[in-house]
Design a protein around this nucleic acid. Structure first.
Length: 384
RNA sequence: AUACAUAAGAU
């Protein structure tokens, strides 16, 4: 059973939920008896992809098999709700476990905080800090990082300061991820000064920035249209001995794109290939954007060819970008052709679908619009 | 052997 459970965990770790489930069934088929850890592993597999219905089924199965759910069972179930934005349901499980006198631990609290945070409910998330103190469960760096991220998701970057203060007060040492998250939240909230200040502070505290830190700073500069600053930061990164990365290059290309500096964007792409930093879908999406802003839709379309030849599949964002370019220059057929080509193995999002509807409405092709609409509903994308 | 956070691209 231990062996099987270990393998299940491997499937879960690579998001292969179906295989994890099959393995569970195989265990039972072999006449073996799954133990509590086996059940918990399967709940965890479902929870990581937000399949809360299935997670709950396994939870109930566990009880039916005569086990008492432990703190991990409850926490994993909470996480399945959290991942689908169902913070109230996560809270219910939390309350339930308390009523059954199972004590929440730090992970349980962090999961609940993240459930609120993912749902954009920072206030509720922050309110849990005193509860943790009351329960004698000191918050840790994960707690802080979740709260910081929550500030960003709810568009309240200014509340980050409170979280950082709370961390200081409790002598919680922030790690690189926590700093990066906070800097990024400040950047996205337009609080450039605070972001820069935190960048200084992290170094004072002995946390060395990495290429992600610099990418965040570069994106921040590109956000305010400061290409020079973006370039300076990029050079600074290299000068402190941090290797160029896809992330940093992509950030730089994004900065060029915002200004329609297509030549520079393309030059950066060439350079990254030479420095053995293979471009990813983020890089290409920014490059497409560069051509778009520069008013060169043909070259934007050509990026798609290059993606194909380098084996990078366009995702929903890349497609929506291309769709809107085609729509803008009246190449409606191209939009629809790309869709029919990719519809089999691509999950579009609401932005991409909207561009498809725009294409149909320009063409007054209501039949196709309806077809796309049905496709959208089947894909589980709800209209906005 | 099982549960938690962690930047960036399109409208």
């Amino acid at each position: 059973v231990v062996t099987f459970t270990t393998v299940m965990q491997v499937y879960a770790a690579c998001g292969q939920v179906d295989n994890a489930k099959s393995l569970f069934e195989a265990i039972v088929g072999e006449g073996l008896v799954p133990n509590l850890i086996t059940f918990n592993t399967l709940i965890g597999a479902y929870s990581s992809v937000g399949m809360y219905v299935e997670a709950l089924q396994v939870f109930n199965l566990l009880v039916k098999a005569g086990f008492e759910p432990d703190v991990i069972s409850y926490t994993a179930l909470m996480n399945s709700y959290s991942k689908s934005g169902k913070s109230d349901e996560a809270r219910e499980v939390f309350d339930l476990m308390k009523r059954r006198s199972q004590n929440p631990n730090i992970v349980t609290y962090n999961t609940l905080i993240d459930a609120y945070g993912s749902a954009g409910r920072v206030t509720e998330a922050l309110r849990l800090l005193p509860d943790m103190d009351f329960d004698d469960i000191p918050p840790n760096v994960v707690t802080i990082c979740s709260l910081i991220a929550a500030c960003g998701r709810s568009g309240q970057a200014h509340k980050c300061a409170d979280v950082l203060k709370a961390a200081n007060l409790r002598k919680i040492v922030l790690n690189l991820n926590a700093y990066n998250t906070a800097i990024s939240v400040y950047m996205n909230g337009g609080m450039y000064e605070e972001a820069k200040e935190l960048y200084e502070i992290m170094q004072l505290r002995g946390v060395a920035p990495d290429s992600i830190t610099f990418s965040i700073l570069i994106y921040g500069a590109s956000k305010v249209g400061d290409v020079e600053e973006a370039q300076t930061l990029y050079k600074e990164m290299l000068s402190v001995g941090i290797e160029a990365s896809v992330e940093a290059f992509s950030a730089l290309i994004h900065a060029y794109a915002q200004q329609g500096m297509a030549a520079e964007a393309h030059a950066a792409l060439t350079e990254m290939k030479q420095s053995s930093c293979p471009p990813n879908v983020f890089t290409y999406t920014s490059l497409i954007q560069a051509y778009r802003v520069a008013g060169m839709p043909e070259l934007a379309a050509a990026v798609l060819q290059e993606m194909e030849s380098s084996g990078i599949k366009p995702d929903a964002v890349a497609c929506s970008s291309l769709f809107s370019i085609f729509n803008e220059c009246g190449k409606i057929e191209k939009t629809l052709r790309l869709w029919s080509k990719l519809r089999e193995d691509l999950n579009l999002n609401e932005v991409a679908y909207t561009q498809l509807f725009i294409a149909c409405s320009i063409k007054k092709d209501w039949r196709t619009a309806l077809e796309i609409f049905e496709d959208m509903l089947q894909a589980g994308v709800s209209p906005t």
